[in-house]
Design a protein around this nucleic acid. Structure first.
Lengths: 122, 122
DNA sequence: TTTCATCGACTACGGATGTAAACAATATCA
DNA sequence: TGATATTGTTTACATCCGTAGTCGATGAAA
């Protein structure tokens, strides 16, 4: 279960998560706008995603409409957990600590996160 | 620059980051203790890491001593940034928000992070 | 000095990935 | 109806990755 999504495939998913269903052409146009790939490449990625049942297809006359079968949130959760487990022993605090030390956290970020945590406690 | 470190290679690096320099045998023993790999596999990974100049070698008679050439902290920073960029648009807040929503944050975690942020502001 | 053990180097190999061309089916236009 | 464009399918191929066997050099032991 929960098939692996490669980096390139992920770029395709991001597009589909923004709007769906879409035809291969529509997806490809969006992706090609930011990743310098050929249309064929995007189609291949769509096929692989469909083969893995990460996106679903629905016939629309001569072509297909593609939609994600995996929620972006679920995907993010899986990937994030994996990430935190592998690099920070499964604890989020060390991750935040690390980002802070590496100056990846601005004062604004800190305020935002504090605000967020305050909300959470309610 | 900054060569990619694969998952398997990362396991080897973790061992070297704990103690260095070490001989291939010493590294392999540690790694094999937790990953069910053969000694040869670990040696191959060490060679690849050396080829990428992620670990350095120092001759010690007939064998080599291996040491990391990349700091664990630097590695974590790179990987974390990449992760946050790719999945959360470069912002840490959405990452934390996501982990919270996905119930990956315990009440203790929240307290810890708050404490950490308080420290940071000084 | 012959033999054996050790260690790094080289080779292997299937599967995943990034990237894309070629092809086949089909619909549309002239 | 025949040419053309569109769309999905198949095939390709180099590289990376996980995993490991084998080879050759060299040092140690007999």
């Amino acid at each position: 279960m929960s098939e692996r999504i490669s980096d390139a495939e992920h770029a395709v998913m991001e597009v589909l998560w923004k709007r769906a269903p879409m035809t291969a052409m529509e997806v490809a146009e969006q992706v090609v706008a930011e990743k310098d790939w050929s249309l064929q490449t995007v189609k291949t990625l769509l096929s692989r995603l469909a083969a893995k049942a990460v996106v679903g297809t629905e016939r629309d006359g001569r072509r297909f409409l593609y939609s994600p079968l995996v929620e972006r949130d679920d995907y993010l959760t899986g990937v994030s957990r994996n990430f935190v487990d592998r690099l920070f022993g499964g604890k989020v605090t060390p991750l935040v600590a690390h980002l802070a030390e590496a100056d990846e956290l601005s004062a604004d970020d800190i305020r935002e996160i504090e605000e967020l945590l305050r909300e959470l406690k309610k």
